[in-house]
């Protein structure tokens, strides 16, 4: 390696304000952020697996419990999947330089996300009406904690979505819009996967958690 020649770092350009570089930086920041959120939900999962082994844990999906038939959770999962797919459509449309379809994809994604949040709140209301409060059982506590935190992450995502939508309406150069939409889509796909994990924890039974915990050695 000839060290005397200046090495132009592939990720750097003299133009500090070059939008393409800004997009790359945002991508790195999102990846780091996803790692942080992964750590957060991973630790919640570990805490859940430990606490769920105690005898007082009573799964909300046990045969006599309100989520024995978790159809509403499936419906909500479907809605969130639609939000994720809408983002995917927006990404594909942006790549093929179809601004109108990109905008439509964004609108749909936002709509389905808000639908999901409303539906989750409705589920909360149902459970509270049945007397399943946050402190009645550790399973309930984790249910409200998980769905609440996941919802807050989606709410935070909606700010990004709003910003991207404004960019899409405000005539942002297509290359930049592509990157913004792609970042949003990655975040939503990620939160969909997180939701599937949380869903499985909410409806899983104690024997399964004991087996997982035993397998992991705790």
């Amino acid at each position: 390696m000839n060290v005397s020649a200046p090495q132009h770092h592939p990720n750097f350009d003299e133009g500090w304000d070059d939008p393409a570089i800004a997009a790359r930086r945002k991508k790195t920041a999102l990846q780091v952020m996803l790692a942080v959120i992964t750590a957060l939900f991973f630790l919640f999962t570990i805490a859940f697996l430990i606490r769920a082994q105690y005898p007082d844990y009573e799964s909300l999906a046990a045969p006599w419990q309100p989520l024995a038939n978790p159809w509403l959770l499936w419906v909500n999962s479907g809605i969130l999947l639609l939000a994720s797919l809408s983002f995917h459509w927006a990404v594909v449309s942006a790549r093929s330089e179809n601004i109108n379809a990109t905008r439509d994809g964004l609108y749909l994604a936002g709509f389905f996300t808000v639908m999901f949040l409303i539906s989750q709140l409705w589920l909360w209301q149902q459970l509270i009406a049945l007397g399943y409060y946050v402190n009645s059982n550790p399973a309930n506590s984790f249910f409200y904690l998980f769905t609440g935190l996941h919802g807050l992450h989606l709410l935070a995502g909606l700010f990004l979505w709003l910003k991207t939508l404004r960019e899409a309406r405000g005539g942002l150069p297509l290359s930049l819009l592509q990157s913004s939409v792609a970042l949003c889509a990655t975040y939503w796909h990620f939160l969909f996967v997180v939701w599937l994990l949380l869903f499985s924890l909410i409806v899983g039974d104690q024997a399964t958690f004991r087996a997982i915990a035993a397998f992991c050695g705790f």
């Binding site: 770092h9 570089i21 790359r24 930086r25 780091v32 952020m33 942080v36």
Partner: peptide
């Protein structure tokens, strides 16, 4: 700390000058 941390990590990874491996 998370907002700061995102900045520090991204700056080190993405904003080094020419020749700064």
């Amino acid at each position: 700390a998370t907002m700061g941390g995102l900045n520090y990590v991204t700056t080190v990874l993405q904003a080094r000058t020419h020749g700064m491996s």
